[in-house]
Amino acid sequence: MMTASRLHPQLVLLMELQDLRSQHRELGEEEAVREVEETHFQIDLEKARIELAEKIEELEAALDSSARRRYEQIRPHRDRVVVPVINGVCYGCFVSIPTATVGDEGAREELRGCENCGRFIYILS
């Protein structure tokens, strides 16, 4: 679980954005998800995807210029723009992150990226 409550506000926004993008992708591409949501929860899948896409656009517009520039650089190449770092490993590219990047107190308060894959990272214990 995440161990610190201090997170960079732009990282919080990026994490919310990533969660929405996961929902949007699953409702569009994952047949099993579509079936469960339709069968048990009677979701209108297409309407739901439109609503999610609108919310995604809204959150993207709320990113500051620096975060948005990086987000737009990463997004065309990577499914996930934000990934956790667990036990010092980036869960986007599975390469070890230098201790200096994740080990200090500022790691959760600054907007940091994986030096290997470029994705935004957050520390999860």
Partner: peptide
């Protein structure tokens, strides 16, 4: 933690 609770609430609410 509190921040995670907030993010999760927003995702569930959406």
């Amino acid at each position: 933690d509190e921040k995670s609770d907030t993010i999760l609430f927003k995702t569930l609410k959406r």
